[in-house]
Design a protein around this nucleic acid. Structure first.
Length: 559
DNA sequence: GATACGGGCGCC
DNA sequence: AAAGGGCGCCCGTATC
């Protein structure tokens, strides 16, 4: 059991650090160098309480690594749901103050000087709220002030910890905190890009790097040309306007209510315009979203793709990422590559959601199925249906789908796995009624409040959302717990996580340590699953491969 | 000019 | 009877 101490630090200049540590025995001010502080933060026998990982960004950018963290903001989000987690709000709730009466965050020092703030090193206003200039860090200019700030953090975090009596919730608090720190590291490190390859891929899809705006318009017209040429006599027409696309299709004798891809796929054999249009969409997506502008904005001079990360931005608690890090088209993934001398290790959790369902619902029959490498095989056998049917049914059950081929097989699921299905059904019912639901790790997932006279589909949509959220959110917690352990395990091998993708990790590591790191990633999953499950017999599996490029050697898809 | 919204689509 | 959940991002249109 690690000790629990709050820390507040700021970097002064490039090498000096001031700050303070607080715990049950009081506060301790400190002045130190970056290496000294790094050694403190790397101590695995201490769980460091911080208001937010972002506050440590300057030190993390300087190379410091927090081994174990308690991030007050993420723990707050876990317990309360939603996004708001600024220190002033958390403090107000902790002290029983009206959050609405807390002072707004201040823009600058001048403003704070006029705002009637307490003098000196007092961290609380006379109202009992935290002073707003502490939130921005502007006030944290002396070790004494850091001591007051750390003391407040320790008080809040201790209360948070005492409120989390369920060991699963405590474990989630640790994992979510680690994810918050990891997000800052991901923003620092970025994803390695092979610029030459990426440029070639963009050129193939969108055209060469335009010299100027006029050239850009020429390339755009060149992309449009094959589509317009496939329907004689269309004249000028804007392919980016869905209504005009419907006109185009109508001229080709195809009448559709919308122009979505899967709608158009059904008409592929009827006219060449369909294939031309779908190819245009693929290329246009790259041209507009992942083209030259994207490369210039998000890939640095060091050939690394950087974007903002959030540890639990998704409604159910998933990580989110900007700059295309979570939705880069597969076509461009050959352009993500480790630099010479290093490799990427990609590790995907296999069939994570149904396995999580077994654990969350504690369905012994489904838990037995997780012992198979391919979970759908024993499920199919038990249901007496083909594997593909079983897979569709299980996924449909977790997404709330009732229609199509899934319908019949769902009846079999209700019969054979009633415990899991009741768990999902209860979540769905809560969602329909507007009640929040809870994940395995205790995350409160808020559901929209039903409005009087709402159309019937609104309640159904809430139901589907809540039904899925308990699984998606719990899977995100397992993933973050795994990522947190991997982060620590690969560090001695000079490895670092460079991408988190819901059920997939990319780790960059020197080539000579690749085998060792891959083995560590695999064994870490076993360890993580053991304490996450607390003895419940569910098996989690990962496919781990050592590659140069992200696109290489995608493990045989099991899902 | 800024903002909101829906259609559409990339990924999981 | 019942049209699968999440995210980020682009474009066009409508609106103020």
């Amino acid at each position: 059991m690690s000790s629990f101490r709050a820390i507040s630090l700021s970097l002064v200049g490039s090498a000096e650090v001031i700050g303070a540590i607080a715990d049950e025995s009081g506060t301790e001010e400190l002045t130190a160098t970056v290496p000294e502080v790094s050694a403190l933060l790397a101590d695995p026998s201490v769980r460091w309480v911080i208001w937010s990982a972002a506050a440590l960004r300057p030190l993390i950018d300087a190379g410091a690594a927090v081994a174990r963290a308690w991030e007050i903001a993420e723990v707050h989000r876990l317990r309360h749901g939603g996004w708001d987690a600024d220190p002033a709000l958390i403090w107000a709730l902790h002290r029983g103050l009206d959050p609405a009466s807390r002072p707004p965050a201040l823009a600058d020092d001048l403003f704070s000087a006029l705002a009637g703030l307490p003098g000196g090193d007092e961290v609380l206003m006379t109202t009992g709220h935290l002073r707003p200039d502490a939130l921005t860090g502007a006030w944290l200019t002396t070790p004494a002030r850091h001591a007051a700030w750390a003391q407040a953090a320790w008080e809040v975090a201790s209360a948070q910890r005492d409120a989390l009596s369920d060991p699963r919730h405590l474990a989630a608090a640790h994992a979510e905190s680690a994810a918050a720190v990891l997000c800052v590291e991901l923003e620092r490190d970025g994803l390695p890009i092979d610029r030459a390859t990426m440029s070639a891929l963009i050129t193939a899809a969108a055209g060469p790097l335009p010299r100027d705006h006029a050239a850009e318009l020429v390339h755009r017209a060149e992309r449009d040309a094959p589509v317009l040429a496939s329907v004689p006599g269309v004249g000028r027409l804007d392919l980016r306007n869905p209504a005009q696309v419907r006109q185009l299709l109508s001229l080709a004798g195809i009448d559709v209510t919308d122009t979505r891809r899967w709608t158009l796929e059904a008409h592929r054999g009827e006219h060449p315009v369909i294939a031309a249009l779908l190819d245009w969409r693929r290329r246009e997506r790259i041209a507009t979203t992942y083209g030259w502008g994207w490369l210039a904005r998000h890939v640095g001079a060091d050939d690394r793709l950087r974007g903002a990360w959030s540890a639990s931005d998704g409604a159910a608690g998933r990580m989110t990422a900007q700059a295309g890090l979570h939705n880069l088209p597969a076509e461009l993934r050959p352009g993500v590559a480790a630099p010479a001398g290093s490799v990427l290790i990609r590790s995907d959790l296999g069939q994570v959601e149904p396995r999580v369902l077994a654990a969350v619902a504690r369905d012994d029959a489904l838990a037995r199925a997780t012992w198979a490498d391919d979970l759908y095989a024993p499920v199919a056998e038990r249901l007496g249906v083909a594997r593909e049917v079983a897979k569709i049914a299980v996924l449909a059950a977790m997404y709330g789908q009732r229609s199509g081929a899934a319908g019949d097989a769902l009846i079999g699921l209700e019969r054979e796995y009633p415990v899991a299905m009741r768990h999902l059904g209860a979540a769905q019912e809560a969602g329909r009624e507007g009640r929040s639901v809870q994940t395995y790790g205790g995350r409160r997932v808020r559901v929209a409040i039903p409005s009087p006279g709402e159309p019937a589909p609104a309640a159904a949509a809430r139901g589907r959302f809540a039904r899925n959220a308990v699984i998606q959110g719990s899977a995100a917690e397992l993933f973050k717990a795994w990522a947190a352990s991997v982060r620590v395990a690969v560090r001695p091998l000079h490895g670092r996580i460079v991408l988190c993708l819901h059920d997939e990790l990319l780790v960059e590591v020197p080539a000579e340590n690749a085998d060792q790191a891959a083995a560590a990633i695999e064994s870490t999953l076993t360890e993580t699953a053991r304490w996450w499950l607390r003895g419940y017999p569910v098996r989690f599996v990962a496919d781990t491969t050592i590659v140069q490029r992200w696109s290489e050697a995608k493990p045989a898809p099991r899902a």
